[in-house]
């Protein structure tokens, strides 16, 4: 997939700069306290490509997706979609942005209205954005969308409880595609599905990207799924960027101790390998996002942390397209055992 066929310029479809999201966490005396959910995050997503956003619970990955779609309000920073500022848009411009950024959630049970037929669910974005004039046109579009996601036309008359989990997630994808968006935010879109069905949905998403030139933000805790789906990957921890790079560079040469620990935590396929390999085990627990550590937020659990990590978190450029925010990348790269 090359972005050359894109109608406009070289600029990325989505550009996020210095994004922070804070939630009020009460007061302590006269001091207001904040949950630092996302702090100073920046990345670009090129047209027609997938950016994987990976991290564990509390990393802020879902909050970023929610900030892009207006489900939570960003505290500071900028988000541009194709040159339009997403965070400050109002009125008609905001509505148009909502058409251009669609979202698919983790649990299709919870995100589909149980009392609404599949056809009505998929048609809703067309109605909201007044996209097709006649009933017949909208019905034709619903049929086309069902076909696109591999569901039979008769599914339009069904209700969510009559479908399997995989079929429901196909409906969510069809609804996301309905208004012809530029960007689809996939927030743990395969996480609640069985392994065999996960593969169906991932194959479907990749086929749709090839055929329609879609751009994805693929949010997941699953490093293997992110590797399979993404062109570029961002690793987050406690609301901050840890590492960012093209998929091949990041997976072949992870330079941040946190990325290394994440990869090491995944069991090897071969039981014989799994029982003998060296693992990096993290100690301790996730610090509170209300009172995050100074300097590098990962230092309290990092096996390579030194005193200076409390003061400095330099971006280290390992390659043109590969950055780790870490003082200890040299040590991390030297110590890394091949998988």
């Amino acid at each position: 997939m090359t972005p050359d066929d894109a109608s406009t310029t070289d600029r990325p479809l989505l550009s996020v700069r210095d994004l922070s999201v804070r939630f009020p966490a009460g007061r302590e005396g006269r001091v207001r306290r904040w949950v630092h959910a996302v702090e100073g995050v920046g990345f670009d997503v090129e047209r027609g490509r997938t950016l994987g956003l990976v991290g564990e619970s509390g990393s802020g990955k879902s909050t970023i997706g929610n900030a892009l779609t207006g489900l939570v309000r960003a505290t500071s920073g900028t988000v541009h979609l194709d040159g339009t500022d997403v965070l400050t848009a109002r009125g008609r411009a905001a509505r148009e942005l909502r058409r251009r950024i669609a979202m698919v959630f983790q649990d299709p049970y919870a995100s589909l209205d149980p009392r609404r037929s599949i056809g009505a669910t998929i048609r809703e974005p067309l109605d909201v954005h007044r996209l097709l004039a006649s009933r017949a046109q909208r019905a034709a579009r619903v049929a086309e969308l069902l076909d696109l996601v591999g569901l039979p036309a008769q599914a339009a008359q069904r209700y969510p409880h009559e479908l399997s989990g995989g079929q429901r997630q196909r409906v969510s994808i069809a609804r996301a595609l309905a208004a012809d968006p530029d960007l689809i935010v996939l927030d743990e879109a395969t996480a609640s599905l069985d392994v065999s069905v996960q593969a169906q949905i991932m194959n479907l998403l990749r086929r749709l990207q090839r055929e329609l030139g879609l751009t994805y933000l693929f949010i997941s805790h699953d490093l293997a799924a992110v590797e399979h789906m993404s062109h570029r990957v961002v690793v987050m921890y406690l609301g901050r960027l840890m590492e960012q790079g093209e998929r091949s560079g990041l997976y072949e040469r992870p330079a941040h101790p946190y990325t290394q620990a994440l990869m090491s935590a995944i069991p090897a396929d071969d039981p014989a390998v799994e029982r003998t390999r060296e693992r990096i085990l993290l100690s301790g627990e996730l610090p509170s996002p209300v009172d995050p550590p100074s300097g590098c937020v990962f230092r309290t659990r990092c096996p390579l942390a030194i005193d200076a990590c409390a003061d400095h978190v330099p971006p280290v450029h390992l390659d043109v397209d590969h950055t780790a925010w870490c003082l200890r990348t040299d040590a991390a790269l030297a110590g890394r055992a091949p998988r």
């Binding site: 593969a199 169906q200 194959n203 293997a224 590797e227 399979h228 990869m263």
Partner: peptide, 15 residues
């Protein structure tokens, strides 16, 4: 069906 770290394939073999 499972994507595996470091073993990229174009398609997963879905059931």
């Amino acid at each position: 069906a499972r994507p595996r770290l470091g073993r990229l394939r174009e398609e997963l073999v879905a059931i």
